[in-house]
Write a protein that binds this DNA or RNA. Sequence first.
DNA 1: TGAAAGTCAAGAGCACTGCTCTCGTTTGTT
DNA 2: AACAAACGAGAGCAGTGCTCTTGACTTTCA
Lengths: 231, 231
Amino acid sequence: MSLTARERVRVELIGEIKTVARRHLAEHGSSALSLRAVARDVGMVSSAVYRYFPSRDDLLTAMIVDAYVAFGEAVMIGDATVRRSHYLDRWMAATAAARAWARTNPQEYALIFGSPIPGYQAPTDTVDPAAIAPMILLAIAADASAAGRTLSVPTDRPVPRSVRSDLRRLAGVTARDLDVAVMGRCLMAWTQVIGSISFELFGHLHNVIDDYDAYFAFQMRGIALDLGWGG
Amino acid sequence: MSLTARERVRVELIGEIKTVARRHLAEHGSSALSLRAVARDVGMVSSAVYRYFPSRDDLLTAMIVDAYVAFGEAVMIGDATVRRSHYLDRWMAATAAARAWARTNPQEYALIFGSPIPGYQAPTDTVDPAAIAPMILLAIAADASAAGRTLSVPTDRPVPRSVRSDLRRLAGVTARDLDVAVMGRCLMAWTQVIGSISFELFGHLHNVIDDYDAYFAFQMRGIALDLGWGG
DNA sequence: TGAAAGTCAAGAGCACTGCTCTCGTTTGTT
DNA sequence: AACAAACGAGAGCAGTGCTCTTGACTTTCA
């Protein structure tokens, strides 16, 4: 059945609140996101907003979920613009898309990859959206591995039992027959992507790197080459 | 000459305020750090604290500087416990010390490696303390490289001109004759250290990695082996 | 030694916040 | 038509960062 008039205006209002909140977030940062200020912009009194978001943290959680989804979609689109069999190009496009999204939406990026909001723990709503982006990068790795392109990864290094089991479990989600050593490198690669973007956005490479574009691409290419996706 | 009575009580009071603030920070998180609450704990009225810290951000900046110094010292001590010529062991000890400090002081770690405080930009006071830890890791690389232990790093990959210049400039600070390719890998390694710790602390590996101890050591060892510090 | 200058703690006050509660009104259901 | 749920508005509470003024205390210097 269709929604009642009241339900329709409710989802619409929730959307409007989120839109205004997103604007405030981008302009003033997460800690300055004021429920009262958002309410003023929407044209409501603050207590009315509480009918739609039980607390400020709930509004923030909605922002986080949306940010994860938007980030994941950006990476997905980046990956999708390239021929499936060109693993290096897919990796470069997907990671460049991740960085571009982060630079366009720094506050939302900080929301999901910066320090967690104090006194707030991510509800389960965020775990699925959070997995979108890394899953795409894993898919590239799985495709490349299936095509036999990960032979240059050293597999003679000992992998502790517990690490092996963790990596196997992770591989079971999408890339069932990915070698454990390759899986470990994929996780390192994912860490490197977010670490590099965070360093750039949070200013940790200030006065160290001037040409972030070239530096990021250089590092991402190095990772892909280490994984044997070159050529 | 010595300090006057007034100056002495002043530095003492600044220290006490910082100590209480550090406790509040550890207990309630950075965004809940209230100048008024700190003042109450110190036994002053809030306006009195403003004589010592012109604003809340200044108090936070002091916390950031202290955190950088403490973090850097922890890494330094970790590195210092190992024979200078054992590069792999030094790397493992230094990075383990970094992770241990972060796990012991998560809020202070988040302060320096999490999202920057909105509307706040790090003053120049923080750049020197911020460099302590990465400089130590660079020193390990420089020592290893001087001993000819970085031959396994591929140097046949093209390095863009701007990246080459950035890396050369960085090398000029401590490790003058470090190869550009090795320098790039060192920066990747540093990114990996902070990225891995942040992922763990900020919960991005929740339900992915169970045995963080083993995982972190495994990844750090892999990085060192890639750099040719094995054996 | 004594006055001027500087420093200090305290308190009141402003504008803001998250959040709760109550009060009529509107809407959907029975 | 009657009732319950949902709703917007307003008042109010406790807390925040920060400013300003006031009166007391030190330090400095003539």
